[in-house]
Design a binder for these strands. Sequence first.
DNA 1: TATTGTTATACTCTATAACTATA
DNA 2: TATAGTTATAGAGTATAACAATA
Lengths: 168, 168
Amino acid sequence: MAADEHPLVLTPLPGEADLGLVDALAQLSFAVQGALGRIATEQGLSIVQTRLLGILRDRRPTIKELAGFLGLDKSSVTGLVDRAETRGLVTRMASPRDGRSVQVAITPAGQDLAERATTSFMAEIGDLVADLSPTQQKRLFGLASIVVAADARRRGINLFDTTASTRP
Amino acid sequence: MAADEHPLVLTPLPGEADLGLVDALAQLSFAVQGALGRIATEQGLSIVQTRLLGILRDRRPTIKELAGFLGLDKSSVTGLVDRAETRGLVTRMASPRDGRSVQVAITPAGQDLAERATTSFMAEIGDLVADLSPTQQKRLFGLASIVVAADARRRGINLFDTTASTRP
DNA sequence: TATTGTTATACTCTATAACTATA
DNA sequence: TATAGTTATAGAGTATAACAATA
């Protein structure tokens, strides 16, 4: 798609960023979310449930921390964890440090499901970027990484600092 | 984030695509969806409603065509259009060619809202990619465009062929 | 018979506000 | 008082199945 062709989602207007970039990114995000949704459905999960399991892979966050990771209200996370717990995918544990808090941990069943989802998702994304050369794929990865890291930093969510969470 | 660092969403496993790429793309899609969600909320819309208005900007698709564009079931689109119609953002019109079909069109109020959303969204995405140089932004745009175009082709949705829809 | 769209139903997801328990 | 979490409530979004109208 050339930069001056019309977009599916939005329309050409002047603005801070180039619309072509904006629209391409929006559409790319829909394509990726579509892939995520397909593999989630395949495993009987939703995108958010899949994301929850992925986060819990190497963390035991509180409800509040999960809300920060997911960008949701704490009450939404309560329901999310409720449904996952009912299905035996996660468990709540009392926090040893704060009587008000709970820590959410993934179960072996949840781990299995998360791993199957990961495998399927990699295959889907492999298909999605199949038209890019290996060099282009690396380039896309690098650019996406820069954007994601900068965004996380701006939002004050350090994806790699786990001092706030107890590691299993 | 370096390629060998752990991901937020998914976990390192061998697969068809490099996990670093997969995870970076997933996280990028969440970041973009987050920006979309914020501007949609700003305008009193959801992401899907915003997307609907964007699609209707230069098309008058049937419910079935909309379902194809959005990747939803036709019954979901019925409800989506119902809610948008109640708010005066879109209208249903009888199809001149098929008595079973309706054509969905955007209203002036819907146009206004879509344009405001577009302006806000461009600013948000401008912030999101602020850490990339202009050259890198163009590169990201180009790579995203290739992926999106290939995906649309594979799914049999020609984003630019409007012969199936009546143009206003 | 097949297709288009709607309706009925049920579930997930989400937020706001009020509440409980702990700090 | 302030914070962590839950509950109650309401609404959007989604899919499946059954249905009506048209092709």
